[in-house]
């Protein structure tokens, strides 16, 4: 009944060594295991509960009330029954889609360019990329007013070429340009994240198998960066459709989007329930659209990319 038990060298045998677990158990404090945590978190919990959740509940509650405070669905039937407001909703979503597309078209090559740079160059370019987010939106929008205005440097450029400058201010173009300017960082950062995660050996491997540079880009880089595109698009779209200041300054009187009506109903018309309903419609529609978009892209990208 003899058997030879063969055990490899200690190093290979023990899973212990291959996975260097921190191994240090957290000290268990006997009294009130969660009291300290709750105590530390309580101020932040209070901020979120009282200044974030409560106002949002207030908003939803008010949207189902008349101005006198009686329950009603009127705010929603009014919004959805009026073709003017439906058009405002479409226009808002359209601007959101254009901005997202613009960010992708400008942001994707930029992210690819950043990928190949030294950490130092990346650092500086990222700072430039983030700069619009770090300066006041008023200043930013005002700069565009000057740039895109009929006497601005771009119009001057057209005139210098003997051309008539197209109208660039107080229309969709101005809003989309202004929005792409702010939102670009939200697109590029997730893209850089997913580009960085691509194994750098994949491109040489594909080329070794006979793929050209372009095939390589379309078949490897693009599909593998889909998660970044998805994340970036979702953020850019949701933030754009709910932006108020930039469209209000650059869109002028002709481009009136959902947030504008939230603002005017709340501050000029003092119809808070209706303002609440418009805000809530915006949130719901945005949530549904982004969910659909995420599902569509996920279907195309294949499960493994998102696993």
């Amino acid at each position: 009944m003899a058997a030879t038990a063969r055990v490899a060298d200690g190093t290979a045998l023990s899973p212990d060594g291959s996975a260097p677990t921190p191994g240090v158990p957290k000290p268990v404090r006997k009294r009130g295991p969660w009291r300290t945590g709750l105590l530390l978190a309580s101020p932040a919990i209070a901020v979120l509960a009282l200044l974030f959740i409560a106002p949002l509940f207030m908003l939803v509650y008010n949207s189902f009330r008349t101005q006198a405070g009686d329950p009603t669905l009127h705010n929603y039937t009014r919004f959805l029954g009026d073709s003017f407001y439906r058009d405002v909703l479409w226009h808002t979503l359209w601007i959101g889609a254009l901005t997202t597309l613009g960010c992708l078209v400008v942001g994707y090559p930029f992210a690819v360019y950043l990928r190949g740079r030294s950490p130092r160059a990346r650092n500086y370019l990222s700072l430039v990329l983030l700069s619009p987010l770090l300066i006041s939106m008023v200043t930013r929008a005002y700069g565009w007013l000057v740039l895109l205005g009929p006497k601005g440097p771009i119009a001057d450029g057209f005139h210098a070429l003997g051309l008539d400058a197209p109208k660039m201010l107080y229309n969709d173009t101005a809003v989309v340009v202004g929005m792409v300017h702010v939102m670009l960082a939200y697109m590029v950062l997730p893209l850089m994240g997913s580009l960085d995660r691509i194994d750098p050996a994949l491109a040489p491997a594909a080329k070794g198998l006979g793929a050209s540079g372009w095939t390589c880009f379309w078949r490897i880089t693009v599909p593998l960066s889909l998660p970044g595109m998805l994340a970036g698009s979702l953020i850019v779209f949701s933030l754009t459709v709910s932006s108020f200041v930039t469209p209000a300054i650059l869109g002028g009187p002709t481009v009136k989007l959902m947030p504008y009506f939230v603002y005017t109903e709340a501050t000029s018309n003092l119809n808070w329930p209706y303002a609440a309903a418009i805000g809530f419609v915006l949130i719901v529609v945005t949530t549904i659209l982004t969910a659909v978009y995420a599902r569509l892209l996920r279907g195309r990208g294949g499960k493994e990319v998102f696993a």
Binding site: M1, A2, A3, T4, A5, R6, V7, G10, L13
Partner: peptide
């Protein structure tokens, strides 16, 4: 016996 190296086991 088995953790510390290779071993012959005889019953």
């Amino acid at each position: 016996a088995q953790f510390v190296g290779e071993v012959n086991v005889l019953d």
